[in-house]
Design a protein around this nucleic acid. Sequence first.
DNA 1: TGCGATTTGTCCGTATGTATT
DNA 2: TAATACATACGGACAAATCGC
Lengths: 228, 228
Amino acid sequence: MTPFNLKPIRKERTLRSDVVEQLKEAIINGDLPPGTKLVESQLSALLGVSRGPLREAIRQLVDQNLIESIPYTGTYVANISVKAIQELYSFRTELEQFAFKLIWDKRDKAFQEELKLQLKKLTSAIKDNDRESAIFEELELHNVVYKHCGHELLEQTWQRLRGRLHLYFTLHQKAHNRAGPLLDAHDRYLELALGDDLNAMLEHITEHMQQGYNKVEQFVSEIKSNTL
Amino acid sequence: MTPFNLKPIRKERTLRSDVVEQLKEAIINGDLPPGTKLVESQLSALLGVSRGPLREAIRQLVDQNLIESIPYTGTYVANISVKAIQELYSFRTELEQFAFKLIWDKRDKAFQEELKLQLKKLTSAIKDNDRESAIFEELELHNVVYKHCGHELLEQTWQRLRGRLHLYFTLHQKAHNRAGPLLDAHDRYLELALGDDLNAMLEHITEHMQQGYNKVEQFVSEIKSNTL
DNA sequence: TGCGATTTGTCCGTATGTATT
DNA sequence: TAATACATACGGACAAATCGC
């Protein structure tokens, strides 16, 4: 621990950014289920902001694939589909493999410690049976990797996937009332991430993602077939 | 040619989307040089739209990395930097390799023909010494690949890079008054893309991108050192 | 088919917050 | 410190498009 481990002061505070955060939260937590129609007048009244900033916030969430927008018709919380999940996981596999290729020779002490710490947090959340935290810490674990790559474009792209991924995890957890996907076998992930065999790590990512995909895909299929 | 090869009617026509296109054009063509401050009141008067749609459009261009925004201070046309170019090219390499892995076993007649046609357009533009078109057709060539992958997330990510890439090409061309990067050796690209050796294609992409990066990086370094 | 209600898209005037000089 | 310029935000109004009846 460094003596002055200060939190970054929240710069960039605008109403728009606040609204983005709140809406994202609501979607990710499942308070606004997929398909929900977002009516501007209602939302602006609910949030206590005017339509201007709200519309700008919605635009940003559309870019993050959390909201779908049809001109002159309406905006809706993003729906889930097997194809979208397929794409998300296959794309994520590539992203994370790229990340490890980038970071491999730059894995300093700080990185290693942060990764270990994050795994502890995740394990702890799982042990406490705190599902919501577990999902968050799971994503934070991967986030550590992206953060340390020093590749802004990559990190930015990851952030744009993260919300959607979080949503899937939450839905999965709510549907089954048990731990979401990927919440185990993280020891192996860490071991390889700190080891010295890059190819083994890359392979593990492929398997890791495949496992996660299988679980999510299965449950989405169930939902879809139930609602027919 | 199919008998009814109708162009899709431009749905999604809103003032915002028009402004996005116009601003993107202006930035990409170099009419709005990097670093230019965009003053809302001036721009809205110039474009003949109110500040509402303009602000929403700006938000979208920020997400495409064509505009940088500092809250309560101003928005500026994105600046160029060696690091940004490095990131763009390394990331693009991964994207395009992923694209070819996806499309490899799905390369039907339509894909092959479209790729050939697009190369013709590019070659023609180069021969006519039409630099602006050449840049566009170059990007269109790669676009064909992404389009045929059937992977929305991938294509979307590509589109978000495309503007920035276009900007680099334009700057390069304006600075040197000669063809931008990557405007040769496309025959080899096509040959491999239609061939049956995926690994050769993947390797070629790495080299292809590396070449392009070298040229752009060099010229950016020149600019930077000139303005010291 | 048309009509009316609802909602989005857009404009404008105004007020406040922030950075810069 | 004050003043200026501009971004941010508000609220009311109207136009345009969609959808249900």
